[in-house]
Amino acid sequence: MLFAELCYQIFEESTACYHVQDCVDAEMENPYEYKSIEYYLFLKNWVDAVQWHLEDVIRDPDIEPVKALEIKRRIDQLNQRRTDLVELLDGYFWDKYKNVRILSCATVNTESPAWAIDRLSILCLKIYHMEQEVQRREVAQIHVKECDDKLSVLLEQKRDLILAINQLLGDIETGRKYMKVYKQMKMYNDPELNPVLYRKGQGV
């Protein structure tokens, strides 16, 4: 099994496990060895699933402002965790391919392997939820048909993305492409870079 297929298999497993309780506060039971690449892939999708459902909740037009702020801050924390996990996964690839001889004609990709895998995790969640919409029986058939059409596009996107990720990893492994990893510099989370936060510290 190629790596992208492994990723998607684990993402499907994580998505299914999350929806057993379908609760943003449910405790994750990760079946993989702690700190293995499979463990982090499962965790990555779980974090995405929790954030996905919190994004649903916060769009409730009747939500209380205090509750909305609480959820928004939790979403921010999850988004930072998601970024941290992507960088951890890129560290795995960086170490794995560090001794590859890079060809003189090698090029750099527009995104790192882990950010492409991040897209695959979100796509898995999109497919799961679109399948749920297709299976609804209390809605008009036009809704079901529209969702079924969207599902077909998502499944095509899944095939294309899996192929692209495997091709990218193959190119890196053979030196036809090389990795460059840029740390995500999210200024709003940094008390030394967010003006609102550092001005408070300065008493401004």
Rank of each mutant, 00 (worst) to 15 (best):
I172N: 07
Y178Q: 12
D48P: 01
M28R: 11
R73K: 14
E87L: 09
L88K: 10
L163G: 07
I71A: 07
G175R: 02
D95T: 13
E13C: 06
A16I: 08
V66C: 05
V100C: 09
C105D: 12
K150C: 11
E133A: 14
L120P: 02
V47K: 05
R119G: 15
N189E: 02
L151T: 08
V57P: 03
R73C: 08
R199C: 03
L2R: 05
E133W: 11
F42E: 01
I71C: 09
K98H: 11
M1G: 12
E138M: 13
L54N: 03
R81D: 03
K72S: 12
L103R: 13
L154E: 12
E138Q: 14
N109S: 13
L197R: 03
V144N: 12
L155S: 14
D84S: 06
R119H: 13
Q184H: 12
Q135R: 14
E87M: 09
A114W: 01
L2W: 03
V86T: 11
N79S: 06
L69M: 10
F11V: 08
D84R: 07
R81K: 09
Y188G: 04
Q184I: 10
E70T: 09
E55I: 06
P61K: 09
I127F: 04
N194A: 03
D25K: 13
R59Q: 15
R136G: 08
E5C: 01
I10A: 01
N194Q: 04
N79C: 02
E138T: 14
Q80H: 10
L88G: 02
I63N: 06
V139I: 13
R73W: 10
E131A: 06
A49C: 13
D56Q: 14
Y34I: 08
Y182G: 10
G201F: 04
R136K: 15
C147N: 15
K183P: 07
E156M: 14
V20C: 04
G170K: 01
H143L: 13
I162G: 02
H53F: 00
R74T: 12
Q141G: 15
A106L: 02
E70Y: 08
Y128A: 08
K44Y: 14
C23M: 02
D190C: 05
I102K: 06
L123I: 11
K72C: 07
E87T: 06
V134F: 04
S14I: 05
V108M: 13
A116Q: 12
E146G: 15
A4P: 01
K177A: 09
K186L: 06
L161V: 11
F3P: 03
D148G: 14
S121K: 04
I117Q: 04
R137K: 15
V66P: 00
R101Q: 14
F3H: 02
K150L: 14
A116D: 11
I102F: 07
P61M: 10
D76V: 05
V100L: 04
N45G: 00
G203A: 00
Q202F: 03
Y18E: 10
Q80W: 06
S104E: 12
E192T: 10
L155E: 15
V204Q: 00
Y39I: 09
D25M: 09
S112N: 13
I162L: 12
T107Y: 14
